[in-house]
Computed example of a mutant assay.
Amino acid sequence: MTDPQPRIINVLLVEDDPGDVLMTREAFDEYLHNRLDVVTDGADALSYLRQEGQYSDVPRPDLILLDLNLPKRDGREVLQEVKDDPDLRHIPVIVLTTSQAEEDVLRSYQLHANAYVTKPVDFEGFIEAIKQIDHFFVSVVQLPGKS
């Protein structure tokens, strides 16, 4: 008996660091089979999620990878707006950031982040973290159906 094909999910990466975007894209291209879309600031993240303007035809993501330190609207604001919006709050949000500050961890969970992951600084560690996040949300947990 063969294993069933893993389902494909849509992932939105909200990240302004070009190096981290590149590493995440490489992880998705080489190891994962999910769709990855990227926006580089908090304002675009909210427009994307609400399918406004240039993002009117994008699919609603099944998972959001969210950096905290973003231009225009920071990740905390994005997280709060996502979790306050009845149309978006069901989307799991993984805070993926360099901050190890206890106040950032606590605040993220207070804002209903589904997980908080500190970015490993080395390439192999970063790739492994992305693969583990993907595995968990594609193979282990059941995500809500499309709205």
Rank of each mutant, 00 (worst) to 15 (best):
T2G: 04
T2Q: 07
D3I: 09
P4S: 07
P6H: 11
R7H: 14
I8S: 14
I8W: 07
N10K: 12
V11N: 07
V11P: 01
L12Y: 05
L12A: 06
L13C: 09
E15W: 03
E15R: 01
D20F: 08
M23Q: 09
A27I: 00
D29I: 06
D29Q: 13
D29M: 08
E30K: 15
E30P: 02
E30L: 13
E30F: 07
Y31F: 15
H33P: 02
N34T: 11
N34K: 02
L36E: 05
D37P: 02
T40C: 08
T40H: 04
A45I: 03
L46F: 06
S47A: 13
Y48A: 03
Y48R: 01
R50V: 03
G53M: 11
Q54R: 14
Q54M: 10
S56E: 15
D57A: 14
D57N: 15
D57I: 06
V58D: 04
P59G: 07
R60D: 11
P61L: 12
D62Q: 12
I64M: 04
I64E: 01
D67V: 02
D67L: 04
D67I: 01
L68Y: 00
L68I: 02
N69L: 13
P71N: 14
K72A: 12
K72Q: 14
K72R: 14
R73Y: 02
R73H: 07
D74S: 10
D74P: 08
D74L: 08
D74H: 10
D74A: 09
R76I: 00
E77S: 10
E77A: 11
E77F: 02
V78C: 01
L79P: 04
E81D: 13
E81H: 07
K83P: 03
D87F: 13
D87C: 11
L88A: 03
R89Q: 14
I91F: 06
I91V: 13
P92H: 11
P92S: 11
V93H: 07
I94H: 00
T98E: 11
Q100W: 07
D104H: 11
D104Y: 09
D104I: 03
V105N: 05
V105F: 14
S108E: 12
S108L: 09
L111R: 06
H112F: 11
A113C: 04
N114I: 09
A115L: 01
V117N: 02
V117Q: 11
P120N: 08
P120F: 00
P120T: 06
P120L: 01
D122G: 00
F123S: 09
F126G: 03
I127K: 10
I130H: 00
I133F: 09
D134W: 10
D134L: 02
F136S: 05
F137V: 06
F137G: 02
S139N: 15
V141C: 12
Q142F: 00
P144K: 09
P144I: 11
G145Q: 14
S147G: 11
S147C: 09
